[in-house]
Each structure stands twice: as C-alpha cells, then as structure tokens.
C-alpha cells in the first residue's frame, strides 16, 4: 500500500492561552482507509485538523501528509472542510469558481461537482438563501473539487439530510477504495460507525486507536458508542 499520502501525527502538542489542547498526540491515517476522529467538545479534533492543514502550528511534534507538511504539496492534493463559511452575497457557483481558480482547476469541474452534491438548481442563487444542509453540501463540493487523494473533513455530515448522508458515505468509501486517505471527525458516533475503518478516540491525547471492528468487539454493548462511553468514563 502506498504511503505517499499517509497522514501522520507525531507527538503533537498544542496549548492555547495556557490551556493544553493536544497533549502528545500520535496516530496515523492510512491510504485506503477512512479514519474517524471522535471525542467530546474541546477534545482537540478541530485543532488537530488545523495543525495538519497549516492553519495553526504545533508547539511540539509534527503533522504530515506523506512525510511532508501540508504546504509542501501541490495545490489540490488535499480537500478540506473545516467550516461551511461562505460569503452570503455570492452565488454557490461563484464560491466554487473562486476555489477552482485558486487550485488551478478548470471551471467545468465546478459544474460536475455541483451536480454531484445536487446543488445545480441552486447554483446561481445567493448563498444567503441556502439552508444549513445546502451550505454543508457546498462546503463538501469545495473539498471535493479536483478529486483530491486526501480528504480532511471536520463534521462532514453536519446538517445533511438522510440522502446526503448516504451519498457522503459512498463518496468517502470511493475515495478510500481508490487508495486515498480520508480523515473525518464527528460527534455522531452511530454515523461514524457505518463508515470508518479506523477509529481514534481523542481527549487531548489519544485515548484509544485501532480498527473500527476491534472497537465494536471490545465494546460492552457491541457499538462504538459503548466503547466511547467506557473509555471516557475511565479517562475521567
């Protein structure tokens, strides 16, 4: 299996305002797998993603993709979703045209990805008129532009309807099946259980890491939720 795009966190430490957010965090996300990061609010999931994407720096340790920092990769290697931020006065299509131009991707890809996220009908409407789910689809469309081999998605299912969630699962699986790396976070454990291959339970540090099947088999009630509850209770 290629390790060209392997995501690796090595002994990452991060404090903000004197408060430790990440404490000696190490884990890998391998190509061909969907890795889910779970943890309570404030566990450091988003901070870990921000460090990986070069938006924040680690106090110690490193977060790399294929052994290199995020900025060392060509544009379009990593598709990221950290929030669904968008200028409300712009149309959805224009929002994606900006992203496509920055990545050096042809604008016909914008129409393709709009079709994929089922936003064609709303593409020329201002984003201010979009629902939460439509904004999330738009953010996912931005992450998927150019078909990147690495996806880093923070709460990707936020606001999606059941059809959207099913589509997202299939799409993420397709990326992983092509040898891509998918790292997602979610607080909806039952949702993650259906899609991830590898699970990392984070609470400032890595509380548990392993295959999703092992997590379920080790759980008292045979669910990811059961293991999660037990681990966090033990951590407290």
């Amino acid at each position: 299996m290629s390790t060209e795009c392997e995501v690796r966190f090595e002994r990452v430490m991060k404090s903000i305002g004197g408060q430790t957010i990440l404490d000696d965090v190490s884990f890998n996300a391998l190509p061909g797998q969907i890795t889910g990061i779970v943890g309570p609010n404030g566990a450091g999931k988003t901070t870990a993603f921000r460090i990986l994407l070069g938006l924040a720096s680690a106090d110690e340790g490193s977060a790399t993709i294929g052994g290199r920092g995020f900025a060392a990769h060509p544009a379009g290697t990593v598709g990221a979703l950290l929030n669904a931020g968008a200028h409300p006065g712009r149309t959805g299509r224009d929002h994606l045209r900006i992203v496509a131009a920055a990545l050096g991707i042809a604008s016909m890809n914008v129409d393709a990805v709009l079709e994929e996220v089922e936003l064609v009908a709303a593409a020329r409407r201002r984003i201010s008129s979009y629902s939460l789910g439509m904004r999330q689809r738009l953010a996912l469309a931005a992450a998927l532009l150019g078909d990147p081999p690495v996806l880093v998605l923070d709460e990707p299912a936020n606001g999606l309807d059941p059809d959207g969630i099913i589509w997202l699962r299939k799409r993420l699986r397709a990326v992983a099946d092509k040898g891509g790396v998918v790292v997602i976070s979610s607080h909806v454990l039952s949702e993650l259980e259906h899609v991830i291959d590898h699970v990392v339970v984070l609470r400032r540090n890595v509380v548990w890491s392993g295959r999703a099947e092992s997590a379920v088999s080790e759980s008292p009630d045979g669910t990811l939720e059961g293991l999660y509850g037990e681990l966090l209770q033990a951590a407290v």
């Binding site: 990221a80 950290l82 968008a86 200028h87 990545l103 953010a139 931005a142």
Partner: peptide, 10 residues
C-alpha cells in the same frame, strides 16, 4: 465570512 480557512487550505 469565515472563508479564510478555505482560502488558506487552497
């Protein structure tokens, strides 16, 4: 409008 994270990841 919270687009800077997207801009800087592009």
């Amino acid at each position: 409008h919270q687009t800077v994270a997207l801009s800087l990841t592009c």
